[in-house]
Nucleic acid binder design. Structure first.
Lengths: 219, 219
DNA sequence: GCTGAGTCTGTACGCTGTACAGAGATCGAG
DNA sequence: CTCGATCTCTGTACAGCGTACAGACTCAGC
C-alpha cells in the first residue's frame, strides 16, 4: 500500500463538481478555484489528481461521452442506420445539455478512454454496414467531424455567452469593429442568416446526418 | 465632422496585430495587452474600437475568411463541384495557417459581414447545382458544419498547445485523471487512434467532402 | 519509532479582461 | 476667437485566473 494520508477526494468527485458548475453556472464559471470550492478543498489540491486544468476538462468531456451506453452500437436487432441515428442523437443530447462543455470538445480532442471506446464501436458498426477497413476508418472520421461540428455550432448559438446587453445599443455594439465596411455589405436579413438561425434544430441535425450517411455508404 | 482628436489606430490595424500575434506566438499569446503593445497604445485604448475581446476575435476570424476571394464561387467556367472544392480548400488553408484562430471559430460563430457573404455565395452555388431553396439552405448548413468541423479537429491536433513535456513522464501525465479506469480499457494502439492520427490530411478532408457532397446532391 | 512518501494548505507571482477617472486634442456654435 | 461639448487615449486599479513553491500533517513499511 502507498504511504501518506488517505485521499479525501477522487477524480470522479472533481469531474462531477466541474460538471455541476458547467450545468448550473455556465462554462466560464468552471475554474480551478470554483471546482475546489465545490468539493471543499484548497484550489491547488486538485493538482494532486490532475496535472492541470486542461486535463480536468478533458476528463469532463470524456465522462459526458461515457454516459452514453455502448450497447446500442452492437444491438443487431436494429438496422445499422437506426443505431447510428440513435447514438448520434444520444451524444448530441448529452453534450447540448451542458452547452459550455462543447467549446472544450474541439480544443482538446477526444482522447479519453471512453471516447476511444466510442470511436472503436463506431468503426465496427461501419464495417458491419459493409465498408472496407479503410473506408470504414475514413467514414468514421467524417462522421465524427459532422457530429462534433454540428454540436459545436449549435452549442455556440445557445450558449449563455450572450448576456443580452440592454438591447438599445445592441446593434451598434455588434457593428463596432466593422465600421470600415460599407453598410450595404451587411446582409442583415439575408437568406444565409435565416439558414443559420432557423435550421438549428434536431430536424436539421438528422437531415444532415442522413445525407452524410447517404454519401458515405451509398451504392 | 466629429469632435475629438484623430484616431491613432484603426480596426484594421488592431485585427492585423492580433493576427500577427496569432501566427507568430500562438493563440494563447493574443491578449488585449499584447495586441495593444503590438500597435503601441495602452491596453484599454482598444476598447475605443471594439466593445470587448470577443469582438476583436470575431473580427479576426471574419478577416481570415474574407481573405478568400469570392470570385471562384461564381466562375461558371468551372463545374460547381470543382468550385466548392476550391473554395473549401482555400478556407481550410487560410484557417490552418493560423491554428490558434480555429478554436475561436466555434465559440463565436460566423456572423461577420465577410462570413455572411461567404454563406450567401455558398447558398447560390448550391441552388445552381439544382437544389430547391430549402434543400440548398439545409445543404449549405451541413456543408459549413463539415468544413468547420474538419478544420477545427485538424487545428486541434496540430495546435502548439502541446508544449511537449520532458517525455519521461508523458504517459503518466496523460493517464492522470483516468486512474479509476482499468488499464485494459485504454485501447492504446487501437484502430480508432490510428484513424484520428493518420487520416488527418488534405486527402481525408477531400475524401470526406466528396462523400458529403454525394449525399447532399445525389439523385 | 523512525523514515520517507504522499496529501493537503497558505501564500504568492504574474497574468488576464476591463471599469473608472481624468488629461489632452479637436471640432462646431456663438 | 473663444468656449463648451465631445472624443481618444493614459494611468491606475480590481477581481479573478492558473499554478509554482514551501511546509504541515498523515500514514505504510522497515
Amino acid at each position: 500500500m502507498k504511504p501518506g494520508p488517505k485521499r479525501s477526494l477522487s477524480e470522479e468527485a472533481i469531474v462531477g463538481a466541474a460538471l455541476k458548475l458547467l450545468g448550473e453556472r455556465g462554462g466560464d464559471a468552471v475554474s480551478m478555484r470554483s471546482i475546489a470550492g465545490e468539493v471543499g478543498v484548497a484550489p491547488n489540491a486538485i493538482y494532486t489528481y490532475f496535472p492541470d486544468k486542461a486535463a480536468v476538462l478533458r476528463a469532463v468531456v470524456d465522462r459526458l461521452i461515457g454516459e452514453q451506453s455502448l450497447d446500442v452500437f452492437s444491438d443487431r436487432t436494429m438496422p445499422w442506420r437506426h443505431r447510428i441515428r440513435e447514438v448520434a442523437l444520444g451524444l448530441r443530447a448529452r453534450l447540448l445539455d451542458h452547452p459550455g462543455a462543447t467549446r472544450l470538445l474541439l480544443g482538446a480532442p477526444m482522447d479519453g478512454p471512453r471516447a476511444l471506446a466510442y470511436g472503436e464501436k463506431l468503426l465496427d458498426l461501419l464495417a458491419e454496414a459493409g465498408l472496407s477497413e479503410e473506408d470504414a476508418a475514413r467514414a468514421s472520421y467524417t462522421l465524427i467531424v459532422y457530429l462534433l461540428g454540428s454540436i459545436a455550432l449549435e452549442a455556440a448559438e445557445l450558449d449563455p455567452a450572450a448576456p443580452t446587453p440592454p438591447e438599445d445599443d445592441r446593434i451598434a455594439q455588434r457593428r463596432k469593429g466593422f465600421e470600415a465596411i460599407p453598410a450595404e455589405s451587411f446582409p442583415r436579413t439575408a437568406a444565409s442568416v435565416d439558414v443559420m438561425a432557423a435550421y438549428i434544430s434536431t430536424d436539421q441535425f438528422l437531415w444532415g446526418l442522413e445525407r452524410v450517411l447517404d454519401g458515405l455508404v451509398r451504392d
